[in-house]
Design a protein around this nucleic acid. Structure first.
Lengths: 353, 353
DNA sequence: ACCTTTTCCGTTAACGTTAACAGGTTTTGC
DNA sequence: GCAAAACCTGTTAACGTTAACGGAAAAGGT
């Protein structure tokens, strides 16, 4: 029979100091490895430290030092391989420079976006990388934070501020290239799956598509553009296979079907492929499909998915370095804006062998 | 031309107090909404607060209050939809109860596991949910943490401690059911893709497979078991489509091929399907394939993937509630261990229509 | 031998917040 | 009308740490 035991309290510097017969300051010097401490004293202290299972209190330490050696990373959809890869890259750079990374997730809603910013700001992280989609309220709060002096770097968020750097992939060009690829293959009726009105401005990929169509003198049929009408506070995350599936079904129900489809991302594209195959269509003969992001899965669909690769790792690295610059220089440095090129990856879903 | 501007400092309670002509304590009462403050004073204070862009210092607050209203969630592979869904569920419960959630990622290496624990412990989170795979060093450090008094709940981590709850899916039974399903369909030569020696004990799914085979008097051909020999410090995350692809190729190269394959998870299964199709095999006629996890994608492969669904959301919720219990009761409660049932989801990759 | 440098460790005073207490004033209850 | 309750604000003393400084002993240089 187990019975409840009373809670323990953490040992403090003073506890260790008392136990080792020195002052707290000496213990502090030992655990932080700075200042002069004799080998003998160090030994005594370390002994007490491990005997009492001491861990320094980061709150007190942070309060005193006015820095926490911690940065925040705000991600939207955590299930997206893009976000995962970004997190990996950021973590790698930051850990190497002695910073911990705390991730906050806001499933693309303004309220949660703000909650994430505030909780990071409250915990006095030394800097924040924001990779969520733009929204009015979130942008306002973000601006306050930046003006409050917290170093901020944005990744792919359509929001500009003189004291925040912006790193983004060239989604406009990527969308343009993907569409141009389809046009070059002879397609004239090209659909787009996955416009979301709320993030209208942010959907550069869609604008790239429109631009390519216009530039090649092709008419865009309104009915060939599908998306979710109202996704106000929803997460559009990895469940978008379903979104792509349903979008494709809508397109296939039309009298005049598109012969090619550009999907806003790979998941949507996979869903679209699934719907097309279900309808008995051959890919790419009956309908060609292009995705975006080049998730690992894309190489393993049947047929393998043509897609646009964005330099995820590089974006994370560049953002991290920009943040380090902001955090570690005494003056706030001049703003940096980087747009990274994307690369079309042609596979079987557009080009039969 | 932009020039660098000197850094700002955060306003403190004292600054606001001075500006509003009151004491810091009064400001504290206003910003926290407790204690009595006259409407008039509150007005003055709030005015100063927004004028000076004040945010309370969570470090000082946490230090004084001896709690941070924050919990940590340690995830292994962030790209895995399972982890993402788990995070979502945990966040939902915790936000509703007034806690922030910080996520730490450790890509399945002991060193990073430990780093995550320590950084969370240092920041004095009120509790931690750990959902990474077990490893010796990490377990030891975790035990210290638990004994140091931090409330800890484990999800699917094969590690037991009298002061930490354990929530897990019944992977043994799930593996057993998946294999039994294949056996019931008449398969006798069933392969398994994705054993990793390092996590040998943890791979309950594999043991379920072995058990089902044994119980039905089927011999397990050593060569039908594939996995990565040495993944010491690697991430086995979402890139495992490749792992499944390569595993399947090995199986297909054998003289005596298995007629069915059970893959450790859906990504591995997708890779396996890709390899099988490339070899000109029909699924499920020539080879049947079962995955595990029921990721959203599984319903959209061709053919749709038979898989085992684990109650992800429920695991997150139950773990959260267990943690809340540990955090909010004065005594440390008795240990709880929950094993959640999994559910076989039969689709086209094993059963032709 | 004497001065400088290095080593070692203690003291003091914050960092920004809030719990606890205390002292007033106003309202309420009967 | 008067005690009790509710209201409003201030004072004090931590929470656990470390920067800055100071003093004394040991080591090093000439």
């Amino acid at each position: 029979m187990r019975r409840s035991t009373p809670k323990k309290k953490h040992a403090t510097l003073a506890d260790i100091a008392a136990s080792a017969g020195v002052t707290p300051m000496t213990v502090s010097r030992v655990v932080n490895g700075n200042g002069y401490v004799s080998a003998e004293t160090r030994e005594k202290v370390l002994h007490a430290v491990s005997a009492m299972n001491y861990r320094r209190n980061g709150l007190a330490r942070g309060l005193k030092r006015q820095r926490t050696d911690t940065i925040g990373l705000v991600l939207g959809d955590i299930a997206n391989p893009f976000a995962a890869e970004l997190a990996r890259a950021v973590r790698e750079v930051m850990l190497g420079r002695g910073y911990n990374v705390f991730i906050c997730v806001s499933e693309h809603s303004a309220r949660e976006d703000i909650a994430a910013f505030e909780s990071l700001a409250d915990h006095r992280v030394d800097g924040v990388i924001v990779a969520t989609r733009a929204n009015k309220l979130g942008n306002d709060r973000l601006a306050e934070m930046i003006e409050g002096g917290i170093p901020v770097v944005l990744i792919g968020r359509d929001f500009r501020h003189p004291n925040a750097d912006l790193i983004a992939a060239d989604n406009l060009r990527g969308g343009y290239d993907a569409t141009t690829h389809l046009i070059a293959l002879g397609h004239k009726n090209i659909g787009f799956i996955g416009v979301t009105p709320t993030s209208g401005v942010g959907l550069r990929r869609y604008h790239g598509y429109l631009e390519a169509m216009r530039e090649h003198g092709l008419k865009v049929d309104e009915r060939h553009i599908v998306g979710r009408a109202d996704d106000g506070d929803q997460w559009p995350g990895y469940s978008t296979e379903t979104m792509g599936y349903e979008g494709m079904k809508k397109l296939l129900a039309l009298r005049k079907r598109p012969t090619a489809v550009f999907a806003r991302n790979d998941f949507t594209a996979v869903g679209a492929m699934s719907a097309a195959k279900e309808a008995g269509l051959k890919i790419p003969q009956d309908v060609a499909i292009v995705g975006y992001d080049d998730v690992p899965l894309a190489a393993h669909t049947t047929p393998p998915l043509t897609t646009v690769r964005q330099p995820t790792r590089e974006q994370g690295q560049i953002a991290s370095e920009a943040l380090l610059r902001r955090m570690e220089s005494a003056e706030t440095p001049a703003r940096e804006e980087r747009v990274m090129p994307c690369e079309l990856v042609v596979r079987g879903s557009t080009l039969a062998e």
